[in-house]
Every structure is written in C-alpha cells, then in structure tokens.
C-alpha cells in the first residue's frame, strides 16, 4: 500500500512527458536530409550575395567603365585587378554589380509572387472547400476558366498596354500564380471540413470565416509552405522568361532573365562570362529551391513517419 502511494507521489511530481509537435518533428527530419540542407545553405548564400553585394562591389551597376569600352572581349574579362570580378557587359558596366542587382530583382519577384499566391490562393481555396456545394462549384469553375487562358500572352499584353513597370509585373504574376494554390488548398480543406474539431467549432457557434481562419488555414500550412517553396522558382522562371524577351524590367535595372538574354546575344564575340555568370546564379538558386521544397515535403508529409 505504501509502495503504491510512493509511486503515485513520484508520478504526480514528475514532469509530463514532452510531446513532440509536428513542427519539431519536421525540423529534425528536414535537417537530416542532406540535399535539403545543402539547398538551404546555397539559398542563404545567394540571399547574402544579394544583400551585401552592393556594399562590397567596387563599381556601381549603372556606371560605365570607359576604359574597357570597345574592347570588352579583352579588357572586360573577369579579373581582380580591374575590380570587375565577373567581367563587364558589352557596355562596359560591371557584371558583378549587375548580377547583384539582377539577383535582388529576381528573388524579389519570386518571393512576392509566391507570397501573393499563398495569401490569395489559400484563402480562396479554403473558402471554396469549406462552403462546398454551389459556392465551391462557381469558385472552382472560375479557376478552371482562368487556368485555360494562356496567361503568358495576357501578361505580356498587360505589360505593353499599361507600360512596363515592376508594379505591373507583380500584378500580372500575382493574377495567375494563385490558381494552383487555390486548387491545392481546396482539396485539403475538403478533407479537413469533416474533422471533429471543425464539427466542435460549428457546434459551439463559431462563425464560418472564423473557423476558416482559426481552424482550417493553420492546418493547411504544411502543404502551403511546401508548395510555396516550389512556387518561388517558377515565379523566377516566369519573370526571367519575360525579361528574356525584353518585356520585363527596364534598363538600367536588370534581372537574371535579362542578363542571360544579353549574355546569349554576345557569346559569338567570345565574351562567355556574360552568359555563364547569370546562368550559374539562376541554375544554382533554382536547384536550391527545388531541393528545399522536396526536403520540406518529405519532412512535413505525415504519411512516412
């Protein structure tokens, strides 16, 4: 009797076993994945490059080095002495500074585009999935309609009609990027809608929009985050595509797509670095995002625990 009492006392004073949350679990699994961690490091380095690059670059991205103009193929090649670490572009502007600037724009477009997609798409999909029935039908039909339009042409149309600007680019990309996200969020919401905690919330008289914001959306986060990491590179690809055609950002500003386009036009002259430098950053960053996205998917997927 006494012994049981002692054990009961002991148990009562012992701290509760610490539960492992989904996120803590996911974190350990993510950091065990070498490719994902590698991707994350690469992304951090690229981000750092974009942030501190302007402060360490000896040249400005608009500044023309008159001493190399006209003989860019010899004098403009990458070297430490001239301060053109990545060489110059055909107009004698420093490629290091321009790459830094292009990286800033490309990353910004990617992140802002994905951000718009996350906000609009998640909410749209959650509302459609939660209400179901006719609301769902109409909302998803709209998504279907928008999806079957060749958005790239419409985007170019928008840029031409309303003038090329960063704002227009963001609006154009934001207009189409949320469609996939809305579908994914809706699919998830359909399964969440019938869970007990939603039923409990309904029974206690919580309004539908509060339920969506407080109970549905937090449960969507895992899927949304994974998809958002994969969305950033595709936004970067869109922007680069448009800039490649010469319809995106305007001089003197630049982006990876514009730099690649410029470099590919110049490679006949033997100035290969103009193509290879932006290409390297483009490829490496996309790889980084894809690996991180895959890692997150593996880490957050409750199926293989």
């Amino acid at each position: 009797m006494l012994a049981t009492r002692a054990i009961a006392d002991q148990l009562a004073h012992k701290d509760a076993v610490k539960g492992r949350s989904l996120w803590a679990d996911a974190r350990t699994r993510f950091f065990r994945n070498k490719a994902a961690v590698g991707g994350l490091i690469v992304l951090l380095l690229v981000g750092l490059f974009a942030l501190i690059g302007p402060f360490i670059a000896p040249w400005d991205y608009e500044e023309i080095d008159w001493s190399v103009l006209g003989r860019v193929a010899e004098a403009g090649r990458p070297s430490l002495e001239t301060g053109h670490w990545f060489g110059t572009d055909p107009l004698g502007r420093d490629l290091f500074a321009r790459t830094v600037q292009g990286t800033q724009i490309s990353l910004m477009v990617g992140i802002v585009g994905a951000f718009i997609a996350v906000i609009v798409g998640t909410f749209y999909g959650a509302v459609a999935g939660y209400f179901g029935g006719r609301v769902d039908n109409v909302m998803m039909r709209i998504v279907d309609v928008l999806m079957s339009i060749p958005y790239m042409f419409v985007l170019i149309l928008l840029l031409v009609v309303f003038g090329r600007s960063m704002l227009m680019l963001f609006i154009g990309i934001g207009l189409v990027s949320w469609l996939d996200m809305a579908r994914i969020a809706r699919g998830q919401t359909l399964t969440l809608r019938n869970k007990e905690f939603v039923e409990a919330a309904v029974a206690t008289g919580v309004g539908p929009f509060t339920i969506i914001l407080r109970h549905i959306v937090p449960n969507l986060l895992g899927v949304v985050i994974v998809y958002a990491t994969l969305l950033v590179p595709s936004m970067i690809i869109y922007e680069s595509f448009i800039s490649f055609l010469g319809l995106g950002v305007q001089e003197p500003l630049t982006s990876w797509g514009a730099l690649i386009s410029e470099g590919s036009g110049e490679m006949v002259n033997g100035t290969l670095w103009m193509l290879l430098v932006p290409l390297f950053f483009f490829v490496v960053t996309l790889f980084g995002f894809f690996f991180v996205g895959d890692g997150l998917r593996d880490a957050l997927d409750p199926k293989d625990r």
């Binding site: 590179p233 690809i237 680069s240 595509f241 490649f244 797509g257 690649i260 386009s261 470099g263 590919s264 490679m267 290969l272 193509l275 290409l279 483009f282 490829v283 996309l286 790889f287 894809f290």
Partner: peptide, 15 residues
Amino acid sequence: AQVLPNFVLAPILVL
C-alpha cells in the same frame, strides 16, 4: 532539366 527552361537551354545548345 527542371532548372533548364527553354530560354536557358537554347543559348547553351547553340554554344
């Protein structure tokens, strides 16, 4: 191939 969209691949191929 995922990180080589057509506008990146085209210059590489020509090169």
